[in-house]
Amino acid sequence: MMPTGAAIEARDLTKTYGKEVRALDGLGFTVEAGTVFGLLGPNGAGKSTTVKILTTLSRPDSGQASVAGVDVLASPDRVRWAIGLVAQRSGVDLEGTGRENLTLQGQVYGLRGTELRTRVGELLERFGLAEAADRVARGYSGGMQRRLDIAMGLIHRPRVLFLDEPTTGLDPEVRADMWAEIAHLSGNEGLTILLTTHYLEEADRLAGRLAIVDRGRVVAEGSPNELKGELRGDAIQVELGDPQADGQASAALDRVPGVWEVTVEGRSLRARTENGSAAVPAVLQALEAGGIRVASVTIARPSLDDVYLRHTGRSLTRTEEHL
């Protein structure tokens, strides 16, 4: 692949596991150097597979990719020097101490002696692990293990850092700390970050640009605000009294003027409208006339979930609940 100025470039990636499971189906995107790029989508959308390919762990069936200007498929060895990975299921050796984990990681990247010791001490300090440095990582909390993971990913000062679902499985408080940490990273040293997540809020807060991934393809790309800006007007969400299967509810709303993009999933009905508060009476009336019970109504400015819904026909929050 021709090297470009981009920190990451993926083009037409496909990957099939076995005969049936198509994990990637022509996925592609470009990440400018020094930015935070988010891949947003539910589990199984192909985010982790993409990270595995870009970090040289796995290979695509077809397609091209380059990281830090180096062709991933042709020169994986060179790519490995330029990247750091914080994988979804961690990579901490639980039997080793924080310091030992970091030291070994540094040794693998050729750091030795004083330089190594200084760098390890620096990272332990920076990630709040100095006190726990000589304790075995098995006793670390989830947040501490995650911070150790990030410290290990950074030990050799990589140009591109991959964060694969960095806050999955963490408590909400710890997640907020981690967000602050990641936001802090992105400002530093021209580091490029590729972040995968299925948390809308995470993508919204951290990513300068993001790609919405669905069934192995990028279905939308842009900054969070651009993506939300594509959606005109407000989102109306109605919780129905009973689950709807036969399309009765959406049929009822089809006759209401100024309401569009009506979708129903289980007991949740969503629609878009120019002016939310003005449309609510008409919506309620139409539903009542159709004999449909309403439990609650919410109006909101477009969220990333609305963007996701629009491009995939499903709500990400709902998709996650069903998993």
Binding site: T56, R80, A87, V92, D93, V108, Y109, G110
Partner: peptide, 16 residues
């Protein structure tokens, strides 16, 4: 054990 904990994957994406 190392596979389950992701330790092998971490080494495989490094220059080890």
């Amino acid at each position: 054990e190392d596979l389950n904990r992701g330790v092998i994957d971490r080494f495989l994406v490094s220059p080890v």
